[in-house]
Design a protein around this nucleic acid. Structure first.
Lengths: 340, 340
DNA sequence: ATCGTCGTGTGAATCGATTCAACGGGCGTG
DNA sequence: CACGCCCGTTGAATCGATTCACACGACGAT
């Protein structure tokens, strides 16, 4: 393997000069620079980032830890983050916590070992334990899709309470009085907030918590949705509408209802969350709460970059909590009007 | 930041001993080991992988470069690869080439800089140029979803010619005589192979290439499918069936046909490719060619691990080309029988 | 003639963990 | 008692790139 010393020998200069050609080309004479550059090309030299990072103290990679890349919502978040990082010449290492606090802790430990420059994190652990542990390493991080507890970190989130209020208000306005909430793992903040918003909308309509049957699931995917729908069909007094904590669940619910011959939206209305691309292409196009996923990723990336820049310039950094607003997209899955 | 020297001082031992506790705990006395371990815990020491890798020569990360993580097919491949890597204690860095040869080259350069332990690669460049360039670095790699040109590398792929033959044979058997092929970027091997298979099935049915109208697209996503469907509807002599190079395209086609009031499958049958989870949940459940995506990822990971193990033991490694077989899943989007 | 400055280059110290030759002490054996 | 051996530990060399104090020559100003 070719190292910087080989290049230096080939070009007839010192290793310091080769390093300068790579990192501050303006400091070296044109003629010398050309000689070094062609030596690099001829030998096929690739610099070793480990040596570099050992010296400079940190790497040029940021870590992104999301709940599940199987959810197109997070794919969009990742796309946004990657774009922001790219513009600053940083690489992104994407990992899945699979909504598990222990996997989250494992990946955060990996990031710490790697001395990543910063982290974008969608916490799986609502207690904040793993995040608190991670803070000790002193690696800058930004929370994504979750508001920080204090103001000790930046965060970008979408108002989940507002989003679910929109969704459920839409249902109560159509006359629904008895709803189901297909939720998800209770330890996720998003799941809790979306319940809060749903209850708020019910209260507006003069309804109490008894109007909302919660159907929790272990995961947030299509299979869990199918499973929840089976439970839904078995309920003694069947609700007339289902609010799902995300679109994957909603698609699963839709599939099972369809197979059971339940007409959507006539017999059962469905609202999803996230408005992933597949929601519009579903058997019955899904009404859903749209979240600005890519924008969230980009913004989170930018906040992190700001913090890094401040750190490098020795300036003070004020943490910011950005909250974006969701938007209800009405489609066929809720279009029927309820009788009474 | 805490370094190994701090731990050594705290535990009252030399740095060599601390390193031994971390890497070969059996060589150190129980009492000493415990002292070092608690020093590590108390100080919150995290070892610096850059220093480690500088010394040992390579990292414990493998690179995975896929065409598009927006395609659930590749998410499944990644899941499989990650699992295989995890079992061997390796991390995975996932990147998207976005089907672009230049982005592919960029990410491969990043992997080379990082001295990743190995690479799993779905090439975007059918010419094999970027792959050939990458070979120079001497980093082991395995091709995924693509058979290698020679036998100079391992590969895991699914027989695309067989898969598309299945798909199109299914259509001709149902009486279709005039088909469209919504393809994709011509520089992808998969796209070419799937055309070859389609033409083979047509030939079996006594039909020539004129029976297949190709509608190429620039990308392989839902939006491109919508766009292709618009062109499809504008054709002078409208085909009765569409074969799409993947499910994302098929979902886009379905959406546009639906909006235009074209009945699927009565007026137009659709076959997709990949059998992603969303294909079954579509407006009209899609007939699709199922590929063993997760298995492909796992297998590719295992082949790479085998190669790495051989390298470490100084053994000879024989490259293998594994070809998996796809399977046709028939659903409603092709269920109508053609008249003549 | 002297001094300062500028533009280029050099070479050694440095980052943190790993590894290995060497060492010391305890024990058993001849 | 002397010797060899094993166990556990030490300390220094090493990996490759970066960085910085310094050197060197040329040139201009005084």
């Amino acid at each position: 393997m070719i190292v910087i010393k080989d290049v230096a020998r080939r070009a007839g200069v010192s290793v310091g000069t080769v390093s300068n050609v790579i990192n501050r080309p303006e400091r070296v004479n044109d003629e010398t620079r050309r000689r070094v550059e062609s030596a690099i090309a001829e030998l096929g030299y690739v610099r070793n980032v480990h040596a570099r990072h050992l010296r400079v103290g940190h790497s040029r990679i940021i870590g992104l830890l999301v709940l599940d890349m199987g959810n197109p919502f997070f794919v969009d978040v990742a796309r946004g983050a990657e774009q922001a990082a790219r513009e600053a010449g940083l690489g992104v290492m994407v990992c899945n916590s699979n909504q598990s606090a222990s996997e989250e802790a494992e990946y955060l430990a990996l990031f710490a070992e790697q001395r990543v420059r910063g982290v974008l994190l969608t916490p799986a652990d609502a207690t904040g334990r793993t995040v608190a542990d991670f803070r000790r390493h002193g690696i800058p991080f930004v929370l994504v899709d979750r508001v920080g507890a204090g103001t000790e970190e930046c965060s970008v989130s979408v108002d989940d309470v507002a989003g679910s209020t929109l969704a459920v208000r839409h249902l109560t306005a159509a006359g629904h009085r008895h709803l189901a909430y297909v939720s998800g793992p209770a330890h996720l903040q998003q799941i809790q907030d979306r319940r809060t918003g749903a209850l708020a909308a019910l209260a507006e309509a003069g309804l109490g918590a008894e109007a909302l049957v919660e159907l929790p699931t272990r995961t947030l995917d299509v299979a869990a949705g199918r499973d929840a729908a089976a439970r839904l069909l078995g309920l003694p007094r069947r609700p007339t509408a289902v609010f799902c904590a995300n679109d994957l669940l909603a698609l699963g619910v839709l599939q099972t209802l369809f197979a059971a011959g339940v007409d959507v939206p006539q017999d059962m209305a469905i609202v999803g969350y996230d408005d992933i691309e597949f929601a519009a292409a579903a058997a019955v196009p899904l009404t859903s709460v749209r979240q600005p996923a890519t924008a969230m990723g980009t913004l989170a990336g930018k906040l992190l970059l700001e913090e890094l820049a401040a750190e490098e310039d020795g300036e003070e950094h004020k943490h910011r909590q950005v909250v974006l607003q969701p938007e209800l997209v009405v489609r066929k899955s809720t279009l029927a009007t309820r009788r009474g």
